[in-house]
Design a protein around this nucleic acid. Structure first.
Lengths: 239, 239
DNA sequence: CGGCCGTTTGAGTCACCTCAACCACGGTGG
DNA sequence: CCACCGTGGTTGAGGTGACTCAAACGGCCG
């Protein structure tokens, strides 16, 4: 837990939710917010512990998971820098949030944030649009989980991560050619996200490499050799 | 397309989004809204035709579908009476909406609705909370699609439909014993919702009937004999 | 060096898919 | 009234993609 830094310095200040705030309101939030760090694997918020705060991701990747009593687990979302974490208007979140990599958050109390929402229509508007986008993204993933083959799933995940992690790739269109990414997830986590087993993920990465679409470098590194082909394999109808 | 009836008569007036409106605003919406009917199977809104309106479901069930170029299809959501249909702030919806049963809608232009949202904080608040709930529901379904067995999926669907269609069952807790429901979906649609094949759905219904948990009556009818067991099979961690 | 962890690789199995026939029902028309 | 047909659902037999279990690999760290 650190002393708040000036929002004006913030790494995500023009992509995050708070970009909607006026300078005065931003100053107010600045006073109320505080930074928190988590190291990879740490639990950020569980289902049992009702969380009293929301946050903006400043750095790192957060995974949202749901699980069944017998241990089966599904990752239902990944949060990247500038994304919003939390469940306003509900004391208990329906999922657990865990740091997939080392993570830095900008936290604010849920009550304060809700007040701010009520006062600042622009902020509420931003949150609403983001939430609508989150629904769309979930639907896209439901299509993947319900219909797609293992190969398509793995390809789709690589495309997703490349889009979010690539320096400044345009939101639309294919990622640019010789692109190297560092996977923020272990094989087991990838499997949990894709609704597969980790062995299956490993084999599919193998095949993609054999097909010359990607190249694995070290454990977590992936170089995308043929982005166009990867996009095609992912079978995203929206691209 | 019918002449608007008074909102005061509306079947869903105290469950739908518009419950947030003041009498004056409600009157305004009343003037702008109009009713539309669709018969089962009709397309309500496609991906290609950018929809210029939103609606509240008055009667019937609407299915939201996404599909892959090769024809594989996934139902990503079901809308029941009082639910909201539409995608504010975006000209093209990322899914197609189709009438699963005969449907009656209360429609209003997207532009007018967006203006109303801007003017009425309570309405925007309602929409925001509903959208947040929609995200939660999608996540729940991702858990089903990613982890659950065919039997669990079918059981979960029956529980879902029973909860939404049952007269006034409490939101929480099991549905009450000898409950008869009419499925709003064909076997093929159930399969598309659950990420299964229709033959598999049929076989699982068979097994549930053999186990004495349900009883099939006619094509679409299901009598739930053992609600507690059905809930258990569905494996919903939230119940 | 030895143990640990994440990953890869291999072999065998199974739940669900595929293909195909069959059945029950409702509508149509002779 | 019944023969016909179309549609939606069920049932059966066989195939397969992903799972399961198990072992080997290769960094990393003490």
């Amino acid at each position: 837990m650190q002393r708040p830094k000036a929002c004006l310095d913030c790494a995500v200040k023009d992509k995050a939710l708070c970009k909607a705030l006026s300078p005065e309101e931003l100053a107010k939030l600045n006073r109320l917010s505080y930074r928190k760090r988590y190291s990879a694997g740490q639990l950020i918020a569980g289902l049992s512990t009702p969380e009293a705060w929301c946050a903006t991701i400043l750095a790192g990747v957060v995974k949202l998971t749901k699980s069944l009593p017998d241990g089966r687990q599904q990752i239902v979302g990944l949060l990247f820098p500038s994304d919003f974490l939390g469940r306003p208007f509900k004391s208990t979140s329906p999922y657990a949030a865990e740091a997939a990599t080392d993570v830095q958050l900008c936290c604010y109390s849920r009550r304060h944030f809700e007040h701010l929402l009520a006062e600042q229509p622009d902020l509420k508007q931003q949150l609403l649009e983001r939430t609508l986008d989150a629904v769309d993204a979930s639907h896209e993933w439901m299509l993947l989980l319900g219909c797609k083959s293992a190969k398509e799933r793995v390809a789709a995940l690589l495309v997703l991560i490349a889009r979010r992690l690539a320096p400044d790739a345009g939101a639309a269109g294919a990622v640019q050619p010789p692109l190297a990414i560092e996977l923020p997830l272990s094989r087991a986590e990838i499997a949990d996200y894709l609704g597969l087993r980790l062995e299956t993920v490993s084999r599919q990465l193998n095949r993609l490499e054999a097909a010359g679409v990607i190249k694995r470098v070290a454990r977590r590194g992936i170089a995308i050799c043929n982005a166009r082909e990867l996009d095609r394999l992912a079978g995203d109808p929206s691209s």
